[in-house]
Design a protein around this nucleic acid. Structure first.
Length: 759
RNA sequence: GGACUCGUAGCUCAGUUGGCUAGAGCGUUACAUUGACAUUGUAAAGGUCAGAGGUUCAAGUCCUCUCGAGUCCACCA
């Protein structure tokens, strides 16, 4: 044995042997199952992924305690995220997605993802993860598409799906609508304009939307405006005179501005709701290209910002602005991805009605059929579930699972808007009728299709079919071009990862471990889908781990320049050290500070483990060489012990037998506490316990006490020390798999594995 | 506005049914060590456990309030 444990030499060899011997999964015991939260297929390992270690700890611990533990891996196509990365890549080449048909774009992104995938699994392997890689599932695999489509079809049949013109948060830059959860609110100072509005003055930050106003509102109890409620006012505007209804609604804050609000249902979520309550017209004045439309007269074609400037200028000229409050601070919804302002706008969208679907989820969480660790997340997810609104699932991007809806083309040529790349590679836009009239065949349109927009007409809807496959009835259909929100598919992760027969034995799965910040996106949806499709919860425990932060507790971010690459640390100090440093001394649910010093500390611990083994092993060899000369015999031990103890009695040394009794007792207590901590997901405590025992009790105390006896070849002493040491190796193995396995093989032979033993 | 977390040694943090002298890692200081390990050992310095009040035989731990830091949700025309 070397003086030091050298991870770089040992790790790869050991991992390969696990793979070769089929130890990535076990074949005996009661099932224990974890589904790996799928990282983005094209991702590479970042510090946050380090926390997957917690799942590996569980898998290994369960393996060692006699379970058939299975960790099923997978990767996610991560719709919007990935397309965003790809579009940046396109932009560098001076191109955009509008240069491609959706088919080609999808193909290109697929290749892009394939080129960049696989890396993360290699990195996971370096961390030692005991996952059954051959079973990897990608969220665009055939069986996933099948399941996702079928779920949607079933939901539609059961009346949980509807299409509506709805106010959605639309990002003009990313070209897609976003769900509530994908928006970020930031505080910002914007000018607040006080506009003269007929007899009133009202305050707004968005004067450019005034063309879409369909009412003004006041609070029902506001004395100032009592007489106006229900009447019409005459307003002199930029486009001439018009009349406007005055409504009253509780939503109006009397203290804000002048207590009068303009209602713009098409471009403000709250106004949209108010519009519904009061049956107001929805007048859309901004199109999805981010420009004002023909309803705005001279402002048509201007982008929002330009329009605002011009409108303000013109209003000022006409004397219609009473004052401007430049110090107004409010929060603005921005895109979580690109950070630009989101535009609330009307867009046809597929929705999942969640009111009924979420009820059993709330039940299951309240009754603790699913337990959350740390506990406080139970409250948080319940809070989220309560406010969860209908879920807009349409994303106007190509990279994803296309929504299985077909619109009847025949007879609806006028009502279907589309864009496509024609044979010559030119982008064409218009109604289907216009395109056909330009001598483009339907098959040409289909193959170059970019986007199909079918607006919602409740009185006379365009006929559509919802099914896994295109209807084959001789008529022509065009498939919806929108794709599912990526959480719609990853939310069905527990429904697509197990084999059929495993739903009998491994479902519900045992633990779902994931970052706490996707609790609402993912965890709540997985529970929802599982209860809906299988009428069963998908997992028994949800273990939330927290953010990995830097040594000072700061969030890691590129702009701060404090990002730590885990693989660098693994290269320098070994996977064991890296893994242990993410667990050691960490409170449940608190941030995980990652500091190089700490990794070094754990590297030192790994070396200590190694050297305890080395010491015992060396004496084992010394003894066996000497044994022909000094055969150990019954009765001999006692004598020798008396001798050595008296010889070394400078300090007060205990008798060997007493030390051994003490050791056995202390070890029993350690193991008991360890098992308790592990079973309660208190990994940090478990590791801390063993750390303390192995280093400061076993090495510093017991080994020192028993050094002489060991050198003198006391079989009993060596046996006891070995036993305690081996047990501790097994206890440490979930945390530090490599060094424990390496020492194990020194003692038990190169072909042995600690994984075949039991704790 | 609603919910939640945190404030313990110079730094980063443990401390779970309230209970022996409040701990660890790193850092600091002194000493030791050529046969397990310098990626070491022995020891030391360093804490009014944010502050105030309360419950209790007993409070870092439970309750109330104050101050400070942070997170999530909702809203902001």
């Amino acid at each position: 044995m070397d003086k030091k444990f050298k991870p770089s030499e040992a790790e790869e060899k050991i991992y390969n042997s696990w793979e070769k011997k089929g130890l990535l999964r076990s074949k005996r015991g009661k099932p224990f199952t974890i589904l790996m939260p799928p990282p983005n297929a094209n991702a590479s390992l970042h510090a946050g992924h380090g926390m997957y270690t917690v799942e590996d700890i569980l898998i290994r611990y369960k393996r060692l305690t006699g379970y058939d533990s299975l960790w099923i891996p997978g990767t996610d196509h991560a719709g919007f995220e990935t397309q965003y990365v790809y579009e940046k890549h396109l932009a560098r080449q001076g191109k955009s997605r509008f240069d491609y048909s959706r088919q080609d774009l999808y193909k290109n992104i697929y290749e892009f993802v394939v080129d960049n995938s696989g890396l993360i699994y290699e990195q996971f392997k370096r961390l030692g993860f005991l996952s059954d890689w051959e079973r990897s599932v990608f969220t665009l695999d055939k069986q996933v598409l099948q399941t996702v489509d079928s779920t949607f079809v079933k939901m539609e049949k059961d009346g949980h799906v509807y299409k509506d013109e709805y106010i959605v948060n639309y990002c003009f830059h990313c070209g897609t609508s976003l769900s509530e959860l994908e928006t970020v609110h930031i505080e910002r100072r914007d000018p607040l304009y006080y506009l003269k509005y007929g007899p009133f003055v009202l305050a707004t930050v968005r004067p450019e939307t005034k063309f879409g106003d369909t009412a003004v509102a006041v609070h029902p109890k506001d004395k100032r405006y009592q007489n106006w409620i229900g009447k019409e006012i005459q307003v002199e505007g930029l486009l001439g005179k018009f009349r406007m209804k005055v409504i009253s609604d509780e939503m109006v804050e009397r203290k804000f501005g002048t207590g009068v609000v303009k209602i713009t249902p098409a471009h403000d979520p709250k106004d949209f709701e108010a519009g519904k309550r009061h049956n107001l017209a929805v007048k859309k004045v901004i199109n999805i290209d981010g420009r004002l439309n023909e309803l705005t007269g001279p402002y048509a074609g201007l982008k929002i910002k330009q329009a605002r400037e011009k409108v303000v200028g013109d209003l000022q000229e006409k004397g219609l602005i009473e004052k401007v409050d430049e110090s107004y601070v409010h929060s603005v919804a921005v895109c979580y991805k690109c950070g630009r302002d989101l535009e609330p706008t009307i867009f046809p969208n597929w929705f999942i009605k969640v009111a009924d679907l979420k009820k059993p989820v709330i039940e299951a969480v309240k009754k603790e059929k699913i337990k959350f660790i740390p506990k406080r997340y139970k409250k948080q997810i319940l809070q989220w579930l309560e406010v969860m609104r209908d879920w807009p699932i349409s994303r106007q991007i190509a990279w994803g699972i296309r929504i299985p809806v077909w619109y009847l083309a025949d007879g609806n040529e006028n009502r279907i808007q589309l864009s496509f790349i024609d044979k010559k590679g030119k982008l064409k836009k218009g109604t289907l009728k216009q395109c056909l009239e330009l001598k483009h065949s339907l098959s040409e349109i289909r193959s170059g299709l970019q986007q199909v927009i079918v607006t919602v007409d409740k009185q006379n809807p365009v006929e559509y079919a919802v099914s896994n496959n295109e209807p084959k009835d001789g008529r022509n259909w065009l498939q919806e071009t929108d794709t599912f929100d990526t959480w719609f598919s990853s939310g069905q992760w527990p429904l697509v990862t197990l084999k059929k027969d495993e739903y009998e034995t491994r479902f519900p799965t045992d633990v779902m471990g994931t970052l706490s910040d996707i609790l609402p996106f993912w965890i709540s949806r997985m529970i929802l889908f599982s209860l809906y499709i299988k009428n069963e919860i998908p997992f028994k425990y949800v273990y939330l781990w927290s953010k990995v932060v830097d040594a000072k507790g700061q969030k890691m971010s590129k702009s701060k320049g404090n990002v730590i690459n885990p693989i660098d640390l693994v290269n320098k100090y070994g996977a064991d050290a890296f893994r242990a440093s993410l667990v050691f001394g960490i409170g449940e649910g608190s941030n995980v500070p990652l500091a190089e010093e700490k990794v070094i500390g754990m590297r030192n611990f790994a070396n200590k483990i190694w050297n305890i083994g080395r010491f015992i092993y060396m004496n084992l060899q010394v003894k066996s060489q000497k044994s022909p000369l000094l055969p150990p015999r019954a009765g001999f031990e006692g004598q020798a012990k008396v001798k050595t103890t008296t010889q070394n009695s400078k300090s007060t040394k205990l008798r060997t037998s007493e030390v051994l009794v003490e050791l056995a007792k202390e070890f029993q207590e350690e193991k008991k506490q360890y098992l308790k901590a592990m079973d309660n997901f208190r990994f940090s405590q478990a590791l801390g316990l063993v750390y303390e025992f192995v280093w400061h009790r076993l090495a510093d105390y017991y080994l020192e006490q028993l050094k002489e006896d060991l050198r003198n070849g006391k079989i009993k002493v060596r046996g006891e020390l070995e036993k305690v040491y081996f047990e501790n190796l097994k206890m440490l193995h979930p945390f530090m798999p490599y060094v424990t396995e390496a020492v194990w093989r020194v003692f038990h032979g190169e072909n042995s594995s600690i994984l075949n033993d039991q704790l």
